[in-house]
């Protein structure tokens, strides 16, 4: 502590960082909550329990949870294969996992629609089987899975790479089979990373807009997601209602983020 001001620049970097953070992030977010607070509890209740709002919330949270779950299962499989096996094209696929992060969401949206629309690449075949992939809740789920699974892979990958083979070897010496070793020795080590990956994918999915609105069809009560509901309130100049819905979504996201932080802190404390 005694040498804490040896390096120069404390005042300057503190002043600039805090000012910039306040102007860009904190003040606008506070303004949003203040705007929402101009309405009383009765109006909050009215907005948050309107049938259209409830339908949008069900779809958003339901599809996000389903997409995050599928992302977690396939994320585990993909990470396992990328880390543990060697096969041609592995490095390319590994690099490509980040595509959903890098591809602008509007491009993802129109592309997924081109694939899954009733006259699309896969949509046509699916339609013959009676499966409506685009313009349905299934479409929302597909878009959110595309957006979400890289989070699981990139959270799990470093953990799996650091995982030594000593425990596995010990278990094998004691006569355990591969499946038992996976279930009892390997898998439990990955649970924290899987939970973090799931939560990150889920949190991102709740707020996702660009990749969903093209494939979802945007029918109120049926395929309308929460971010779109905010946009439609804004277009009718209902600023307060938009702020209330946004405030509700932010509270859910912040609680999720807080829970991951708590989990990570506990785990890093355990590993110490």
């Amino acid at each position: 502590m005694s040498k804490r001001r040896v390096i120069p620049g404390f005042g300057l970097s503190m002043g600039f960082s805090i000012t910039y953070l306040s102007l860009i992030i904190l003040i606008p977010l506070v303004a949003l909550f203040l705007k929402a607070a101009t309405l009383g509890p009765a109006e909050w209740w009215f907005i948050l329990t309107s049938p259209r709002m409830i339908a949008a919330a069900k779809l958003t949270f339901g599809a996000s949870a389903a997409a995050a779950l599928v992302s977690t299962v396939f994320g585990l499989l993909v990470t396992w294969v990328l880390v543990r096996y060697r096969f041609p094209g592995r490095r390319l696929l590994d690099a490509m996992v980040d595509l959903p992060f890098a591809l602008p969401t509007a491009v993802a949206g129109i592309t997924l629609t081109a694939i899954y629309a009733p006259n699309g690449w896969l949509g046509e075949t699916l339609a013959k089987w009676g499966i409506e992939a685009a313009y349905s809740p299934l479409g929302v789920f597909i878009a959110l899975t595309f957006i979400g699974f890289p989070f699981v892979v990139r959270t799990l990958q470093p953990v799996m790479e650091d995982f030594g083979s000593e425990c596995e070897e010990a278990a094998a010496t004691l006569g355990a089979g591969r499946w038992v070793i996976f279930r009892r020795v390997i898998f439990p080590m990955f649970i924290p990373a899987l939970i973090t990956g799931f939560t990150l994918a889920f949190a991102r999915a709740i707020g996702e807009y660009g990749s969903v609105i093209f494939i979802s069809g945007n029918l109120p009560m049926q395929t309308e997601i929460l971010p779109l509901l905010i946009v439609s309130q804004l277009e009718q100049f209902k600023y307060e209602a938009a702020a209330v819905i946004a405030a509700g979504m932010l509270i859910v996201s912040f609680v999720l983020l807080f829970l991951i932080n708590l989990l990570q802190r506990r785990l890093s404390w355990q590993n110490r």
Partner: peptide, 18 residues
């Protein structure tokens, strides 16, 4: 890290409210 937890739509909305 906070902006990562904020929906893009809300990131636009805050400026409209201001």
């Amino acid at each position: 890290d906070l902006p990562f937890a904020v929906s893009p739509v809300i990131a636009g909305l805050v400026w409209v409210l201001l």
